[in-house]
Design a protein around this nucleic acid. Structure first.
Lengths: 224, 224
DNA sequence: ACCTGAACACCGTTCAAGT
DNA sequence: ACCTGAACACCGTTCAAGT
């Protein structure tokens, strides 16, 4: 035995919450791909088999972790008819920010529909804002679905760079390939490279969000 | 030796294209997760090590396969100023259809920005349609980015059911959990379960697409 | 009841050795 | 030059055996 038990705090007893917390630590430190059952177990000074007492499998653990991220999102002020658009954009931006603090977590709600309380609380608040804005029920329902696809995908795109650890190099590399494209075959693409790569993540994310929010005023659902 | 070489056609010589084609066969049959280097090699009657003569690694193989899917997309008629909205929606719907025929492939353009010719050809056509519609350059550029996030995520959502092979059961299971939610805590969610689950994939996809397309007329980019 | 060592059936990738 | 058997360093999950 290398260390006496007095060298460090008594090992916390395992529990479902401890497993999820350990998963969150690994997630924040190294991204979703690094959240292996073995890595989470190591974080708890135990072996991977021990985790199966508290979670059914890796997929369930990741779902719990996603809900923990969702619970970090501040629902914000009560829906206000006069400010519904900015409330909506602000709420969805907070969702993205929470996911961006946990690289790769956006893959989880894209792999199966979240049903945890954290996620439901956000959807409930979004529906409240949409109702305050006078959006018809069917439009509001489908909007929630569509806009989360966008938000999740946007967060995932950001995490590519974070998870690969390069940030600058990857972006520069793809930009380079775009600058070498065949001007004759893709004239528009070639002439618009500047516009395609301009703007930071926030400006681009906000643009897409506003596209969908403004669209709500002008698009009817096809459902009867 | 179990079979003489006359029992079957001469084994096709390996090549980069053969590796990609074998990957596509596995993809269509069993989804992206099933496209392992070992499965692709087995499809070619060889071992996984042999593939590395033609592709650098699994990631590169998947990128090539995504571009093969992109090349299946019909660019459609020349951009027409009078019909730019429907042309745009039709093109993006064809993109989704092509991806839906290859379950899980949408994860590839979400994991790294595509730079192949198949993808570029589609972007070039989209930019042409947007220009015909009189959309400013910066809006068009950001729109392409945003709308592909949405299209990729939407295709991925569909493939959840296809890849898990259940289709009906998974959808019914999540719906069931929604019908049991706490009416007091989530009154809107509870009262709108019907609206949230209504509509087939096509109607919902089209709704989100039209949100973004209509939004183009009303949202300005923040870039100078 | 709770925990876990060891094993099983997989992965992607490398490399020395073959033809 | 092209191909590949065998190995390496990983995975998620199970289960018999321990306490």
């Amino acid at each position: 035995m290398a260390r006496s038990t007095r060298d460090r705090p008594a090992k916390a007893p395992l529990s479902r919450d401890a497993v999820i917390a350990a998963g969150m630590t690994v997630l924040r430190r190294a991204g979703l791909d690094a959240v292996t059952m073995r890595a989470v177990a190591a974080e708890l000074d135990t072996g991977p088999a021990s985790l199966y007492v508290y979670v059914a499998n890796r997929e369930q653990l990741l779902n719990e972790m996603f809900d923990a991220v969702a619970r970090e999102v501040e629902p914000g002020p009560e829906p206000d008819a006069a400010r519904w658009r900015e409330q909506l954009e602000a709420l969805l931006t907070r969702v993205r920010d929470a996911m961006d603090r946990h690289p790769g977590i956006a893959r989880v709600p894209l792999a199966n529909i979240p049903t945890g309380h954290g996620a439901m609380r956000i959807v409930e608040r979004m529906l409240g804002i949409l109702r305050a804005g006078g959006i018809p029920e069917q439009s509001a329902a489908w909007f929630v679905d569509c806009v989360f696809l966008y938000v999740n995908a946007a967060s995932l795109e950001t995490s590519i760079y974070v998870e690969s650890g390069l940030t600058e190099d990857v972006a520069a590399g793809t930009r380079e390939r775009f600058e070498q494209i065949d001007t004759a075959e893709y004239p528009l693409l070639a002439s618009m490279t500047g516009a395609l790569f301009s703007g930071d993540g926030d400006a681009r994310f906000s643009f897409g969000l506003r596209l969908m929010i403004e669209g709500l005023r002008h698009v009817k659902t096809s459902a009867r």
